[in-house]
Design a binder for these strands. Sequence first.
DNA 1: ATTGCATTTGCAACTATTTGCATTATAATG
DNA 2: CATTATAATGCAAATAGTTGCAAATGCAAT
Lengths: 134, 134
Amino acid sequence: MRASSVEQIIIETLSKEHAHLTSQQVFEIIRKRLPAVNQSTVYRALTRLVDSGKVSVSDMGTKAVVYELLTDGLHHHLVCQKCRQIMTIGHEEVEDFFGDLQLKNHFQIVTNHLILFGICENCQVGTNTNTEEM
Amino acid sequence: MRASSVEQIIIETLSKEHAHLTSQQVFEIIRKRLPAVNQSTVYRALTRLVDSGKVSVSDMGTKAVVYELLTDGLHHHLVCQKCRQIMTIGHEEVEDFFGDLQLKNHFQIVTNHLILFGICENCQVGTNTNTEEM
DNA sequence: ATTGCATTTGCAACTATTTGCATTATAATG
DNA sequence: CATTATAATGCAAATAGTTGCAAATGCAAT
């Protein structure tokens, strides 16, 4: 794979923002530095970065998927379907499960960013105000 | 939730087909019985069915997500990124992991259909012919 | 049957994502 | 340095999926 300028800028961008960004947000930020860049170029660069394991892509239940840099250790997320809160959990909470599955099914897991939907502690009691359903 | 005719037909369709269908496939099949039905109606009915837990929606790594009826027991899938083979695993292989996470994070998991990507046994050795990359 | 209300539907517009193809840029090789 | 191969990009068109709004429908209580 060639060193693509767009890929580099995406990595720098995701590294700086340190958050989950949609392809649109990535596109907007990149345009400030490369005004002529095409949106499909951004999509394709993001796809390459995901394929090479540098970036994760997740459907958080919003209408657009989000991208995140995977440099500082693997992690996963729990997403509350009521209040939309996103909790981050470390890979150590997932490691053993993955290991078991790999052994039992002779399958080498590549997935590196798990998104699990559910109801957070706060929303499990009936008293929360933020009841925006999914 | 009211008994929607489209929802009923979707359930019958998914029940008969017993497979992962894209929204387009569901749409085509439903059109045979309700020729005037609109595609957005199908999307919305599918969304309602997913929200109510009757149907699962999964991104299998193809360009369109797929839907599956969840009547006969929970299950999950391992998808090979090389040969695209889909393996099905029972919920019992996932149960303990989910239970642990729920306890540790005080989070009630709703996700009922896990998709994990990786490399199947066959494709782990270098000798397979079907090397269509993701 | 009629009314009132909430849900579902159709439609059209809009956002999100993918893809084919021609062109350009970079790297590799002679 | 010139040539060739490969990967990246732009553009436009196509496919996926979402949403606002108004109209239609189903359900429940008269």
